[in-house]
């Protein structure tokens, strides 16, 4: 009888532990909408400068730099150097904060010898101060992959995250810098893109 009770306690403790762990883990993923499946896997891609729709100084550039670095280190695709993209922007007279039109996107893709382009917009970037006096960074981004030859949208992604969401216990796990949060979010987005696009190409 005692042995049975012990087992029951053991299972109950295990169940509670699993529930806590599950509750603490982050279940929300970036919202990715796949609109057109690419005909073959993406080999080389160009990341175009992100638009900053926030009051955070250089918010667009910060997320752009972090996202590009994460994309390079992911080894999923080859990334066109930022300098080449900026050089074509200068030639086409696309000023900072401006987004290229369809014809300019086609020219950029062709000149950079890429089939796909990543466009992005930082919708929210701020460092909120919590009641405990900690910094809780918040980032919201909207990214798109478009076909540089046709101008068709391949996928649209929206991602929103707060540093607090990664807290495990006490202050452990909590992200308290915008750079780190941007890196984690970029990693999540790239991982999801890779999985979704591979699945879609395999299906076709």
């Amino acid at each position: 009888m005692k042995g049975k009770m012990k087992k029951l306690y053991y299972y109950l403790t295990l169940l509670i532990f699993l529930l806590i762990v599950n509750g603490c883990s982050i279940s929300t993923f970036p919202n990715v909408q796949l609109l057109n499946c690419p005909s073959n896997s993406i080999q080389r891609i160009a990341v175009l400068p992100f638009k900053n729709d926030t009051k955070f100084s250089q918010g667009g550039d910060i997320f752009y730099k972090v996202f590009s670095a994460q994309l390079i280190s992911s080894n999923w695709v080859k990334v066109v150097p930022e300098g080449d993209v900026r050089s074509i922007y200068r030639q086409l007279e696309i000023f900072p904060g401006q987004q290229p039109n369809i014809q300019q996107l086609r020219i950029i893709a062709s000149r950079l010898h890429v089939s796909y382009l990543i466009l992005g917009k930082v919708l929210k970037m701020e460092e909120k101060r919590t009641r405990q006096g900690e910094i809780d960074p918040i980032i919201s981004v909207s990214l798109q992959i478009i076909n540089g030859k046709t101008g068709k949208l391949i996928l649209v992604t929206h991602h929103y995250r707060e540093g607090e969401a990664y807290r495990k216990i006490m202050h452990f796990g909590m992200i308290d810098t915008v750079t780190k949060l941007a890196a984690v979010m970029s990693h999540e987005i790239i991982e999801k893109w890779e999985r979704d696009l591979n699945e879609c190409i395999l299906k076709d």
Binding site: S68, A69, Q70, S73, I135, T177, T179, A183, S186
Partner: peptide, 15 residues
Amino acid sequence: TSSSIWAWVGSLSIK
């Protein structure tokens, strides 16, 4: 090759 071959992102806070 004029290509990016490695990249790293890092941050530190007093916490």
